[in-house]
Computed example of a mutant assay.
Amino acid sequence: MLSWVLAAVVGLQDPSGPQTFAVPSVDGYVLNGQVDRPAGPSRGAVILVAGTGAFDRDVRFGTSGTPRDLIFADLGQRFAARGLSAVRYDRRGVRHNVPPTEVIDPAATTSVTAENLSRDVGALYDWTRSPEGLGAQCVVFFVHSEGGVHLAGVARTDAPPPALIIGMGAPLESKTAAVRWQLSGRDAESLRLMDADGDGSVTNAEVEANWMRTPSAVFGTMVPFIQPDGVWTPEDIAMVETVQAGLYDQTKAAALAPPDEAPYPNAQAPAFSQGWWKTWFTDDRPLAQAYAAWGAPMILHYGEIDSQVREARQRAAGEGVMNPGQVTFVSHAGRGHTLGEGVIMGPIDEAIADRIADEAAAACPG
């Protein structure tokens, strides 16, 4: 509790400026971050939870070469402009504002587990609501991609539901379903999306014209999709699924082999524990079930060309599970996983970023 009080004092010389914090998680690991504060009284708080990666509080995940590539820093300014306090934090094991070679803290790697990543979000939620923290009466979560997995872990506890959950490329299906599709379903689905004339076959001309707007564009090359004989038949595409299903099984076996505490992906570039990676092959709990039990309203944004999470799959995962009226699905034509022009990278389309900020503000009217 004392560390909360001390952390809350930092940065308050300018009540409208950023406020840094250091919040202990359940296991004692200290989470560092900042609160982007509004110019006047705060009407509520938004906790931003990043997706897969060694992300600090800014979440650099764009290709524009502008400050908008820092997608959480950009959203934080938009939330603050609408009277909300934006809570942004450095993911466990990641350092902020240091040279690139020092960003990862190797000593923390073994503790970067699925359970701890959810517990970290829970600790920040407690701090944000606590009188010793921000004392927020209204809290919104903004989650990107795997951030929705971390928040589902909080939903499975006795924590009170927030005022709203806003998702960007956030899954409702299970972790195992998501990674199975990425490893053994994405390419076949992409080929079918390239079938411009709908005849069931995909010519090389259709590949060349359409591959960049399919999930498999994330790999940056169309070479694997060029057929020597010039056309993919429906049988060929089905065979892709069969072959990749076998490769998935091999990948799963390899993932489950190392000790949980070993670094992932390897000792030279540690980012997570191997235990974290294993859960993508073993955790088959649909996230929709956790969110339905929690009952918080959700607005879930999906890009048409998202390479990581497909909207149709999430709608199917939520159907018959989510409470009536609990979820609003928002589709964005020509936008990807980070609601930008690319299939995975941002920055977020500016109009969509403003819409998300407006949705958060509407949930905390003050």
Rank of each mutant, 00 (worst) to 15 (best):
R355M: 15
I352N: 08
T242R: 13
A114S: 09
A296G: 06
F272T: 12
R192D: 03
V143A: 13
G200P: 03
Y264S: 15
R192I: 00
D236K: 12
L117T: 13
A292F: 10
G346M: 03
G122D: 06
A357Q: 13
R78S: 05
Q244A: 14
D187W: 06
T279D: 14
V121W: 01
M222L: 15
T233Q: 12
G83C: 12
Q268W: 01
I352T: 12
L300Q: 03
D158Y: 00
Q314W: 04
G33Y: 03
G122M: 02
T251F: 03
G220D: 11
T233G: 14
A292W: 07
Q274C: 13
D236L: 11
A267R: 13
D283W: 10
F79D: 07
I104K: 02
G51F: 02
P106M: 13
E311H: 14
L70D: 06
R156G: 03
R78D: 05
A363I: 06
P15Q: 14
E208K: 11
D197N: 11
E102K: 06
A316W: 11
I165V: 15
G303R: 03
S64V: 14
P324Q: 06
I352E: 10
V35Y: 08
H96T: 12
A290L: 04
E206H: 14
R335Y: 12
T242D: 08
D354P: 02
Q34F: 14
V154W: 00
G318V: 02
S3M: 13
D90K: 06
T63M: 13
V327I: 07
G147V: 09
E146C: 12
E173L: 13
A123V: 00
Q314N: 11
V143D: 05
V143S: 08
G51K: 07
R315Q: 15
G51N: 04
T221P: 02
F21G: 00
T110M: 05
V94N: 08
D306N: 07
M222E: 15
P297D: 04
S273P: 12
G65L: 14
V218S: 12
T221S: 12
R68V: 13
A296M: 10
W277N: 13
P234S: 08
R82T: 05
H96I: 05
E319F: 11
G76R: 10
P228C: 02
S3Y: 09
I237M: 01
G169Q: 01
C138S: 04
R68I: 10
S273C: 07
F219H: 11
L84K: 09
A254Y: 11
L2S: 09
